[in-house]
Nucleic acid binder design. Structure first.
Lengths: 164, 164
DNA sequence: CGGTATCCCCTAAGATACTG
DNA sequence: CAGTATCTTAGGGGATACCG
């Protein structure tokens, strides 16, 4: 057993904080937050995406997901299995064969995740543009700052007598 | 400048891989993946959540989000600003005042994220139950394995002569 | 107030090797 | 094939100190 969720998490009851802006619970130990962190995880997202079409074997997933290590895939799958999002079926053949599939709950999650990915795809150009614009702005500001700095130095040298 | 997205990312064109199961691009350098990783980030999610209601100052955000360090909040905000999801407005007063707000694009993202959070809230009980069931199963299996092991040891001791 | 710069720790994740 | 165990490292993230 490597970790678990065993620390003192519990349901996050309203602490009665003044601010009602907090529509979602911000506290670090909140259960919702914790679930969110897990399913929004890089590999989880991809695994759920892939399993939507059909069940897959361990190695099929491994090959399908570029860059995932054996360790991380196993870990991710066990997490998803524990959360009841993915089912694991062992066929007692030789060589062994293990199939992973979405559970009904996992399938409902897929829909939601899909929306997020769609959003990302729709806006990726806009985001790229925003980044480029931001970077240009920053670069310009930095250049300006450097020019100003150089000028100040030049003035200082002109005013002070040269020593040595 | 701390990092950036400057490496050779580029749009991930279809590499013509055989498998059409890959509805989303899995390659580690994929732009969509990279954006997803950023917005699915723990702090980003919360910042976007909070800014939906109204614009907030740095310190307001800091206070609202339990457990965030100054460094991480600043980092997160700069990322979001760079991606065009959050706008940053400096009021040249003294003491300085900086307001953060969602851009129109940020607002659309909020809707999508909200769906994800809703899903999580709806299913958190089911997930908790699944986890409990899983943990019980694992515990039972482990116990069984230990019993078996103990038995094997007992048999071995009974067969082998006691040395020393 | 609203940051940036610095140091430092600790864990998540990759690489590697071994097992049923 | 489908994993687990072990080692190691990069970098996420906290604490602190200082600037405009």
């Amino acid at each position: 057993m490597e970790d678990g969720t065993s620390e003192s998490l519990g349901y996050c009851a309203d602490t009665g904080v003044d601010d009602d802006v907090l529509q979602w619970d911000q506290r670090a130990d909140c259960e919702v937050r914790q679930i969110l962190d897990r399913i929004a995880d890089k590999w989880s997202l991809l695994v759920i995406a892939l399993l939507d079409k059909r069940s897959l074997r361990f190695t099929e997933l491994r090959r399908a997901i570029d860059g995932v290590s054996q360790r991380m895939l196993a870990r991710t799958l066990r997490h998803l299995e524990r959360d009841g999002l993915v089912s694991r079926t062992v066929h007692p053949t030789v060589p062994p064969r293990v199939d992973y599939a979405l559970t009904p709950m996992g399938a409902t999650l897929h829909t939601t995740i899909r929306a997020l990915v769609d959003w990302t795809e729709e806006h990726q150009n806009a985001i790229a543009a925003a980044r480029a614009a931001y970077d240009r702005r920053v670069a310009a500001e930095q250049e300006a700052a450097e020019r100003e700095e150089a000028e100040r130095l030049a003035v200082a040298r002109a005013v002070l007598p040269v020593r040595g």
